[in-house]
Design a protein around this nucleic acid. Structure first.
Lengths: 228, 228
DNA sequence: TCCACATTTCCATTATGCTCGAAATATGTT
DNA sequence: AACATATTTCGAGCATAATGGAAATGTGGA
């Protein structure tokens, strides 16, 4: 076959345990230094360095240097979508250990996907925004209604800040665990940043899973009527 | 990392040249016997057999036996989506040879994606159906309007036939070459079958690309106002 | 029953590439 | 200038798995 030799490169880059570990770690959305990625994948810095340069070469990652540190992040939202699409195939399979089961349950409940909120909580919040008419579906995107804009500005989300950028403003992102959409793009990211700011959600140590705090539970119910 | 060991298996299955060749061949949507897949990937039947059983084991393919032949096809639309998502990362890269360039151009113009029409032609047709109000976007799906139903029934598409099935009826499928949506799901498949029936489109030998016949060019323009 | 063909199993060869120790390079700190 | 830390380069060892020859199995036809 000779359609697109590149897809082989991309897929074989993803199809390696250490590199998957790195990619899934970066799917949390943050830029992370090589050393931390090495630790996450449980490999030595030498090995990680080799993997990282291959993934940059292959278009999966980009990096920025700050002094002696080098921060890596996913090259684009497309990479995140591809990873999620692979998870969508991979997830229906049976679960092995109880330990994994707990981790998976936590991921399904709430996690960051690239830079926005996903999982049951992400989908539930998106659903409420739609029900309240603050958001409307339009093709593969969402649009923010005038009331939605007002309401989110009042809530402290930098609604306009990101609109200038090239990036999709409010994209529909398919949730692999819920198999429904949640808000992605610049708006999804800004909203999620605000939830972290308010400490309604907190990152769990070392994993992509996210915890909803008691204030968050209360706040989401009061502010948006989200029931979890 | 230990989130989902399965994604490693799935991705490493995809990340192998011969297997990609087989998967891309099956992305055309047909069920094909092992021998033809071996030929497509330019490997011996022994090797193909090994790859095929691994991919069945890994949940990428399913097979049915008819006599001494064994027909393989993609296990689900999710597999097709994942492959398209990988292409979306892989495609922006430069093209090497003129030969490839021609093949790529043909693919971009019109191809089958799993079992429905994709590429410029697929997107253009979908656009016209939307403009004519026969189809409407709704979230990640399309809905067929009453006029749309009437019009497509008249055109010979088995609109209701497939509706009973579990499958998505009219899904929006992201086109990696056009980066826009086209009609997928049962309706997309039924519509595409009708286009083959009318010989408005024809499969090209051995590739996923599809040719629009002269009758097809005329027909699409007359019936739907599609300009290509 | 015999033959043709599709597919699979077994096996040895071979190539690819992951891995990490050692050492080099680069940057920041004291 | 000396040292600590982050990252990369080089090289050798090692494991995995893709590959196809040989032969077995399964199915259909004469």
């Amino acid at each position: 076959m000779c359609t697109n030799p590149n897809i082989v490169e991309v897929a074989s880059l993803i199809g390696e345990p250490s590199r998957i570990a790195i990619l899934l770690h970066l799917l949390g959305g943050k830029s992370l230094p090589a050393s931390e990625l090495a630790r996450a994948a449980r490999i030595t810095p030498q090995t990680a360095s080799s993997h990282l340069s291959k993934m940059v070469e292959g278009g999966l990652l980009v990096h920025e240097s700050y002094g002696r540190h080098k921060y890596y992040r996913l090259a684009s939202a497309e990479v995140a979508y591809a990873l999620e699409a692979l998870q969508a195939i991979a997830s229906p399979k049976p679960i092995r250990s109880l330990r994994e089961s707990d981790q998976l349950r936590a991921l399904r409940y709430a996690r960051t996907c690239y830079d926005h909120l996903a999982g049951q909580v992400g989908v539930a919040l998106t659903d409420r925004l739609l029900e309240l008419g603050l958001l409307q579906e339009e093709g593969k995107d969402f649009i923010l209604s005038p009331e939605g804009k007002q309401r989110l500005v009042h809530f402290g989300v930098e609604v306009e800040e990101e609109r200038k950028r090239r990036r999709h403003y409010a994209r529909q992102c398919l949730d692999w665990s819920e198999r429904r959409h949640h808000v992605s793009g610049a708006l999804g990211a800004a909203l999620t940043r605000r939830l972290f700011e308010l400490r309604w959600i907190e990152r769990l140590e070392g994993v992509r899973a996210v915890r909803v705090t008691t204030e968050g539970l209360q706040g989401l119910a009061d502010e948006f009527g989200v029931v979890l």
